[in-house]
Design a protein around this nucleic acid. Structure first.
Length: 464
DNA sequence: GCCGACTTTTT
DNA sequence: AAAAGTCGG
């Protein structure tokens, strides 16, 4: 009798799961294991919204395994200790896991290899399943270990054929003698956003099918429309791996109208950021490119940061997006760009501050996508144009022309009709008194001057 | 080392 | 029209 352990990480699904399929094919018994990692719980990466979504995912994964005669084994603690103990208890020969890209995942893999080897067991690391094309699968012809610019990457990536998505195994036999453990209830998590989406592979597939039917074709035309909310909303499922990006690429390439190409391009952006992080794991905290910034600090910066977090900057479209984040644990992509630009360029606050706040709230909060997109906006990342600044008023007028999005999230401005809602400071004093809404905490020109001046001084210092 | 090209804009 | 440098072939 042979037994394998499958360690689930960011791949909480049964379909298109190479480690699970390999383990089922290799032996008589499989222990599907998820470890609630004590190190992650103690880190700044824990967040109630993701914890709640995760519990949905685990419950659904367990249900799917039970439909196949198996069950999920859940434990808490140090992931290496737990895997080692479970493997010993089940007398497993091998442990299967999908490769991860973050520094943490890479270190975890190294520790697992060592620990298991000491016991005479083997860790089988499968290609990353968090992306459609594995990090490192395509590299520039010059010999670098990763692409630093999106477009050449997209060209090479597009020529790759993502692996054919695997079917879910028909049956999974779990050995007796390994207790299942308890999947904690979602309802017990405190501080969860009211409008949080539900997790799990079933929920993900339902969302995918309805979106393919009614959203994908118009994606290219409407994905930037803030009130239209026409993005896929699949990001939390991609983060937790309840949907397979390889499957999504196959599906979108079957051409569901003009939106397919634009959507595939967005999927490539995920892969792009993951291959950058896999090669430069330190980019989760350090500037990918040093721009000699000296970000604002001290009490005045702290006050601005607080206003930004609460959605009280006085710039309606910024505040609306920040309130959406607090309310849903999610933010429209266009909103993410504009609030990030506002924090880093207009308020000239360190991108890490914003990235951390996003990680505390986003249900899809993902180290690769979040940190590297923040760096992109801040100008310290892979953008070769580090001075790009988004003007919140123009962004509001362009992507929320009638102010519908702003009024949806800012009840205090709900009575202010039309596009005037983007510039409440232009109202006459009498009218303005009717709205309990802050004056802008910074002038756009003032913010821009501060950013450019600081960058210039930093560059001169850097040349010395 | 040349040179074409570069998600997301602003004026 | 000018981004503002820098990547990648």
């Amino acid at each position: 009798m042979t037994v394998s352990v499958v360690l689930f990480t960011s791949d909480l699904r049964l379909r298109d799961h190479p480690p699970l399929s390999a383990a089922v094919a290799a032996g008589d018994y499989v222990v599907p294991l998820f470890v609630r990692d004590a190190a992650i719980a103690a880190s700044g990466f824990a967040a109630p919204n993701r914890e709640a979504f995760l519990r949905d995912c685990l419950a659904d994964l367990d249900a799917g395994l039970r439909e196949r005669g198996g069950r999920l084994v859940v434990r808490s603690g140090d992931v290496v200790d737990v895997v080692r103990g479970i493997a010993a208890r089940a007398r497993a020969e091998e442990v299967h896991v999908a490769a991860g890209v973050s520094g943490y995942a890479q270190a975890r893999e190294r520790r697992l290899v060592r620990a298991l080897e000491a016991d005479g067991r083997r860790l089988r690391v499968h290609d990353a399943v968090i992306t459609a094309v594995a990090p490192g699968a395509v590299t520039p012809s010059g010999g670098s270990d990763h692409f630093a610019v999106f477009t050449p990457y997209f060209t090479r990536w597009s020529a790759e054929r993502p692996r054919r998505p695997l079917r879910a195994p028909r049956a999974v036999r779990v050995p007796e003698g390994v207790p299942s453990g308890r999947i904690p209830r979602r309802e017990a998590v405190r501080g969860v956003a009211e409008g949080l989406a539900g997790g799990g592979e079933k929920a993900g597939r339902a969302l995918l099918l309805s979106w393919r039917r009614s959203g994908l074709a118009d994606y290219a035309a409407h994905h930037d429309d803030l009130p239209g909310d026409a993005t896929s909303r699949l990001s939390p499922h991609l983060h937790f791996g309840t949907l397979s990006p390889a499957e999504l690429v196959h599906l979108a390439r079957e051409k569901y109208g003009p939106g397919s190409d634009a959507f595939v391009r967005q999927l490539c952006w995920r892969d792009f950021h993951h291959q950058v992080l896999a090669a430069r794991p330190e980019a989760s905290a350090a500037d990918y490119r040093e721009r000699h910034d000296h970000w604002r600090e001290g009490t005045s910066a702290a006050r601005d940061i607080q206003a930004w977090k609460e959605g009280r900057t006085g710039y309606p479209v910024v505040d609306a997006a920040m309130r959406q984040l607090l309310h849903e644990g999610w933010m429209h992509n266009r909103g993410r760009l504009l609030v990030a630009s506002f924090l880093t360029k207009t308020l000239y606050v360190d991108w890490r501050v914003g990235a951390q706040h996003f990680l505390e709230h986003l249900v899809d909060g993902d180290i690769a996508n979040n940190q590297l997109n923040w760096q992109w906006v801040a100008g310290t990342g892979t953008d070769t144009r580090p001075n790009r600044v988004l003007n919140p008023v123009l962004q509001g007028r362009r992507y929320d022309p009638d102010g519908v999005y702003v009024r949806r999230w800012l009840p205090e401005l709900a009575g202010l009709a039309g596009r005037r809602v983007h510039e409440p400071w232009k109202l006459g004093a009498a009218e303005r008194a009717g709205y309990d809404y802050p004056e802008p905490i910074v002038g756009l020109g003032e913010g821009l001057a501060r950013f450019k001046g600081a960058r210039e001084r930093g560059r001169e210092r850097g040349r010395d």
